[in-house]
Amino acid sequence: MSRTHGVGETSKARGRGGRYLDSSRDLALREAALAVLAEVGYDRLTMDAVAARAGAAKTTIYRRWRDKADLVVDALNSLKGVPDVPDTGSLRQDLRALAESTTSAESRFGAQVTTGMVSALARDAVLRRVFWENFLAPRMAGFRTVFERAEARGEMPEGHDLDLLAGLFPALVLQQLLMPGDPPDARFAGRIMDEVVYPLATAPAAPAPDTAAGVKTDG
């Protein structure tokens, strides 16, 4: 089960001006943002185009979202959901559960939407910050929690860079999105977990660079 993210989690929520807003418009606005993003990409997406697609005033959008980066990332979260962190008691099963939940909402449309943001992420600092804080970081935190539990159970040797491990799966999925062919599906995600992430997580941790180089430290 995934948790959706965004303003529309309750029937009414406070807008940016402090007023209560009817969230029945949120879904239409998010869907319009995703549709425009899939068609023209992030750089060419405008609030005017989203408002026209949704049949809403532009001010309606700005009451809910600060800027187009905030709107697009929130809409992407509503499409994919934030996966729950599994706790099966097994690292391999936890990773498989994460793979399944991550790709269960994936589709060719979802892949097209995500791909539409990729080139902009490298150039747009605001989008990059919002995407990291509201989309990528919560997902990587889930991976880190799974690895921390595995360490505590003794399934993983200590000394691994857990943040590095947590970033492997998103990086490989993103690479697959950029390649020709089908978008990443549950089978592809499962292979990443079984053939890349799990073997690396359970292998002995690499020695620190100074130790590997034979450099002695003081003390």
Rank of each mutant, 00 (worst) to 15 (best):
R3P: 05
H5A: 00
V7G: 00
G8P: 11
E9Q: 13
R14A: 14
R16S: 11
G18E: 05
Y20M: 14
Y20N: 09
D22A: 06
D26F: 04
L27I: 10
E31P: 03
A32F: 02
A32V: 04
A32C: 06
V36L: 01
L37V: 09
E39K: 05
L45N: 01
T46G: 06
A51H: 02
A51V: 00
K58Y: 06
T60K: 01
T60H: 03
W65F: 11
R66C: 00
D67P: 05
V72Y: 02
V73Y: 03
N77C: 12
L79M: 11
G81I: 11
V85H: 04
T88G: 11
T88F: 02
R92H: 12
R92P: 06
A99N: 11
T103I: 06
S107P: 09
Q112S: 10
V113S: 03
V113G: 01
T115D: 07
M117Y: 03
A120W: 11
V126Y: 02
L127V: 08
F131D: 08
E133P: 00
N134G: 01
L136A: 14
V146F: 08
F147W: 03
E148T: 12
A150N: 07
A152E: 15
A152N: 09
R153W: 09
E155A: 10
M156T: 07
E158F: 01
L162A: 08
L162E: 11
D163I: 07
D163P: 00
L165V: 04
A166L: 15
L168Q: 09
P170M: 12
A171F: 13
V173D: 04
L174R: 15
M179V: 13
P180N: 15
D185Y: 12
F188Q: 10
F188S: 05
G190W: 13
R191A: 15
I192Q: 12
A201K: 05
T202W: 07
D210M: 11
D210F: 14
A212W: 10
A213N: 02
T217Q: 15
T217I: 08
